[in-house]
Every structure is written in C-alpha cells, then in structure tokens.
C-alpha cells in the first residue's frame, strides 16, 4: 500500500517523532508505515487521517494489482 505520509508530514514540518507522539505509536512504526514496510490497521489509519485532517483515501492508495 502506497501512502503520502512523508509529504503530508513535510508540509507541516513535523518530524517522525512528532507524528509518532500524536498517533501514540513509536517512531519506528511511523517510519515503517512511511516506507511501505508495514500497513497500519484501520483504527490507526483513521487516527492518521484525523491528525492530518483528511480522509484515509487521501493518504493511502492501494498498490496496483500485479498483471495476471
């Protein structure tokens, strides 16, 4: 799953630690989500959307399905 977390964070001049504190997760978790190595649960995705004041769809995009 792709996401715009890094861009949204940069727009607000927040560090990963700032965002982690706002979301009540570790900085490592923010980094893993940002780099696409970990997909957040739906509740965490909602929290992320709330912190940035936008919808989940505006932050996360499904990876295109691999060609069959």
């Amino acid at each position: 799953m792709k996401n715009r977390l890094k861009v949204l964070r940069a727009e607000r001049d927040w560090s990963q630690a700032d965002l982690a504190a706002a979301l009540e997760v570790s900085r490592q978790t923010v980094n893993a989500i940002e780099t696409g190595r970990f997909d957040p649960s739906l509740p965490l995705a909602f929290r992320i959307a709330r912190v940035f004041g936008c919808t989940i769809e505006a932050i996360f995009q499904e990876d295109p399905a691999p060609p069959s």
């Binding site: 700032d18 982690a20 504190a21 009540e24």
Partner: peptide
C-alpha cells in the same frame, strides 16, 4: 509541533 506523548511515558 510539540506533543508530549503520555503513551511513550507509559511504555517506558
């Protein structure tokens, strides 16, 4: 943004 994380303190 400066948010004091109570979660991080509880974790520690």
């Amino acid at each position: 943004m400066t948010i004091r994380s109570g979660w991080a303190a509880a974790q520690a």
